[in-house]
Every structure is written in C-alpha cells, then in structure tokens.
C-alpha cells in the first residue's frame, strides 16, 4: 500500500487559515489501512481543526467526506454536487488523491493533509516499512525477493558496502543492511553460490521516475 503520515496539525491549520468553509476528504484505500487518511482520521482531524479555530475565536465549517478511492475519477466526482459551495478541499489521501482533486475541481484549491511517504507494508500494529521504489523493472527474482534498490541505503546492486555492521546499515543502527538480508535469504534458498558471485549489470533507470512521468495504457481494457 501507499503509506502516508499526517502533517503536523499546526501546518494544516496555517494552510487553511484563509478559508472558513472547507471539504475534508478522506480515502478508504491505502491511507485508511495505514491509519492516516480514512474515515476515522477525517473525524479526528476535523475535530482538531475545529478546536484550533475555536481557540482563536474563529468559526469554520467542515464538510467531512470519505471516498471509496481518490485515485479514480468516478469516486472523485462524487463530491461534484456540493464542491462548489466550499472554498477548498483538504485531502488526506495520498499525493495522488490530492492531485486528482486538483485536476477535477479546477477552481477549488486542493490542499494536502498528509505527507505521502512510501510504498510498503505493516510490520505490526502501528508500524509500517518501505519495500518498493517503483523502479519499473523488477529484479526480485535475482535477489532472493529482497529489493536492493529500496533496502540498501545506497541502492547498490553489488553490495554490501564496507559499512555493513552486524546486520545493520551504516546509516542507522535501527536500519537493517539490505545486502545482509539478501545474502541470508539467498543462502536459505540455496541460491547464494550462483547468484552472489555474478556481477550485476548496470541498471536501466529509464523505466523509473528518471524517465519522466510514467503512464501505462492497456489497449485491451480501454473503452
């Protein structure tokens, strides 16, 4: 899922300072699962904003909505009927959702309530960790199912570097060394001998964001 976290409440209060009537839009997809932008978080943020405005003696009207997804046009369109009655949309979807709001409602400012952080999963209740950088050319079959682009701080394809220490990365003692994980996993799979000794060729990053904004078209699915 796309993992995000709430912006500091005061940053949000400052961002919406000039508005007195806003839509606060959550999303029931990834950000709901990572407890950053679902229905519950919409309620809590609306309340916190209300507290902040009351504290300053200023009223604010907040219309709370939580869409099925903010990354699909048909769901984003669901606020069409009343969007014009509000001065701004504060979206607590990921960056995609905020941009979809901006694209669909040309004259209403779309504001981000979250910092979209990474593609990852949950390790345990309340803890999320990055797994994928979306490089567009997956090589997990060669690295024991552990991504060197994401999990090595230097994205080395022929690691580990000299900074690997007791399974940890030189960047932080809390961070695992991605290459230690790859080596352990290759060994467990019995693939260490043939995989590790091979030189990893230079990567083509043109499928990554480096090639510009990416787009996928499925002709078989188009209307």
């Amino acid at each position: 899922m796309i993992v995000a976290q709430a912006k500091p409440i005061e940053d949000i209060v400052t961002m919406i300072d000039r508005y007195d009537k806003i839509i606060l839009a959550g999303c029931k997809a990834c950000v709901a699962v990572c407890a950053a932008g679902g229905e519950k978080e919409v309620g809590i943020l609306a309340s916190a904003i209300t507290l902040a405005r009351k504290r300053d003696g200023r009223a604010i009207e907040i219309r709370e909505v939580t869409l099925e997804r903010q990354c699909d046009p048909e769901y984003v369109e669901q606020i069409r009927g009343f969007a014009g009655d509000y001065q701004a949309v504060l979206s607590i979807a990921c960056g995609v959702g905020v941009q979809y709001m901006a694209e669909h409602y040309k004259t209403i400012p779309a504001l981000p309530g979250l910092n979209t952080s990474f593609m990852g999963g949950s390790l345990e209740q309340g803890v999320w960790s990055e797994r994928c950088q979306g490089c567009g050319q997956c090589i997990l079959h060669l690295t024991g199912g552990i991504c060197p682009v994401t999990r090595c701080s230097k994205s080395l394809f022929n690691g580990p570097c000299g900074g690997s220490s007791k399974g940890k990365c030189e960047v932080s003692p809390e961070m695992e060394c991605g290459w230690q994980l790859i080596i352990d996993r290759l060994k467990a799979l019995g693939e260490f001998e043939n995989r590790f000794t091979e030189l990893f060729p230079i990567k083509d990053w043109s499928t990554s964001r480096d090639g510009g904004q990416r787009k996928i078209t499925r002709e078989d699915m188009k209307a």
């Binding site: 409440i9 209060v13 507290l51 504290r55």
Partner: peptide
Amino acid sequence: RILAALGI
C-alpha cells in the same frame, strides 16, 4: 499530544 500541538 494533539492538545499540546494546538497550544492547549
């Protein structure tokens, strides 16, 4: 934490 951030 929320209250503290809001100056309450």
